[in-house]
Design a protein around this nucleic acid. Structure first.
Ligand SMILES: [Zn+2]
Ligand SMILES: [Zn+2]
Ligand SMILES: [Zn+2]
Ligand SMILES: [Zn+2]
Lengths: 130, 130
DNA sequence: AATAAAAACGCAACATAGTTGCAAAATATT
DNA sequence: AATATTTTGCAACTATGTTGCGTTTTTATT
């Protein structure tokens, strides 16, 4: 399932995601985008991006979906073995360059992976020490 | 924050969790428990269990919380480095014995970890091959 | 056993994230 | 320009989880 049409809304969302150094929730996208776009539209758009392998998402511990462009995962679209860090102080969720060794699980069929570490990010930790 | 009082409801929930080989959601607990317990009560109960280090939870990719007793994590209550497997066929989420090497992240303060692999579990994969 | 304090519970109302159906608008194709 | 298909907006809805508050249960004290 690939993207078939170019729209202003899609362009804007992709541009915002390229310019943002961390993951974004649907609400954040709706807020920060210069164009007014309905949340349902953003949900369905992201669904298409994920299906096309352009975007992946990580579910934070409180159950919200955070979306990011697929940059380090050119070949394996589904098995994202990089780590995500959720900061409980500033609320951001980041894609980290650090990767995890995915173990072999005989008998299981892996489709997707989500590695999440929760804590205080470097910025917030630095502020705390001042 | 430790448990201070024993109640029928808490006993039943712990017993159910001990007897169940996979994680449980709050709704599943409310359904399967022989005693009628309000969902708010179960939520608060699990919150206490988690704070006491008796229980941990994993958030599935669709944002639901799945709870399990802490068995393999006697010492480090928060950093659960075992893997969780979410089956998209039967919906179950399991604690697997397989563990992940948690990388060192300089500058970050880790509090909690959630490692999730999504796919088809051994049981459902076997059924598919018949 | 009666009393009192604290913890746990139930209920209703609420908050939020995400979904669905359908009609309208935008895009690509002829 | 006409047509077919994709994408969008809206409103209503579902589901998970939370909050406030009054009541009940548990436990400790008298
Ligand atoms: Zn932070
Ligand atoms: Zn990522
Ligand atoms: Zn299964
Ligand atoms: Zn577990």
């Amino acid at each position: 399932m690939a993207l078939t049409r170019n729209t202003k809304a899609q362009e804007e969302v992709l541009k915002l995601m390229q310019e943002t150094p961390h993951t974004l929730t649907v609400d954040e996208i709706c807020e920060k985008i210069p164009l007014q776009v309905n949340k349902t539209t953003v949900y369905r758009m992201l669904e298409r991006f994920v299906a096309a392998g352009k975007v992946h998402f990580i579910t934070s511990s409180d159950g919200k979906a955070h979306y990011a462009l697929c940059t380090s995962c050119k070949h394996q679209h589904t098995l994202h073995n990089h780590i995500h860090f959720q900061c409980t102080a500033c609320g951001t969720v980041d894609c980290l360059p650090d990767k995890v060794e995915i173990p072999v699980l005989p008998g299981y069929q892996m489709k997707e992976t989500q590695f999440l570490i929760i804590g205080i990010c470097t910025k917030c930790a630095a502020v705390g020490k001042e």
